[in-house]
């Protein structure tokens, strides 16, 4: 997993857009393990327009520091818990996706 971290505000990006969309700062490439933990999560039953429900949203805290809001892939183990280990599994139309591991 590759991340691009803003030198100005620290926001984490998964694609290199050269400049931070938040503060305009320069992005610096930072290799990441793709591993992190579930900082919090919610199963969304009434979603945004055009998004099939339910889906799992998680605030993921990366091993290298920093948090990103992402989808959690469906899994067979049922509901996750805060602190569960997750790994990056790719970018979708709705942004980053992580899965429990």
């Amino acid at each position: 997993m590759e991340t691009f971290v803003c030198a100005g505000c620290g926001r984490i990006y998964l694609e290199n857009s050269q400049r931070c969309g938040h503060c305009g700062g320069d992005l610096e490439e930072r290799p990441a393990s793709g591993r992190g933990i579930v900082y919090s999560f919610s199963s969304v039953h009434m979603g945004a327009r055009g998004m099939p429900t339910p889906y799992l949203l998680a605030l993921v805290e990366l091993e290298e520091g920093g948090r990103i809001l992402a989808r959690l892939a469906d899994n067979d183990e049922g509901e996750p818990s805060i602190g569960d280990k997750v790994v990056f599994s790719g970018l979708s139309d709705t942004g980053p996706v992580f899965r429990l591991f």
Binding site: S40, S42, G47, A48, M51, L57, A58, R71, T94, G95
Partner: peptide, 16 residues
């Protein structure tokens, strides 16, 4: 863009 709504943000906040 990730599919977050206000209830979802406050769901994350409440859980934490």
């Amino acid at each position: 863009s990730v599919g977050s709504t206000f209830p979802a943000l406050f769901g994350l906040i409440a859980r934490r």
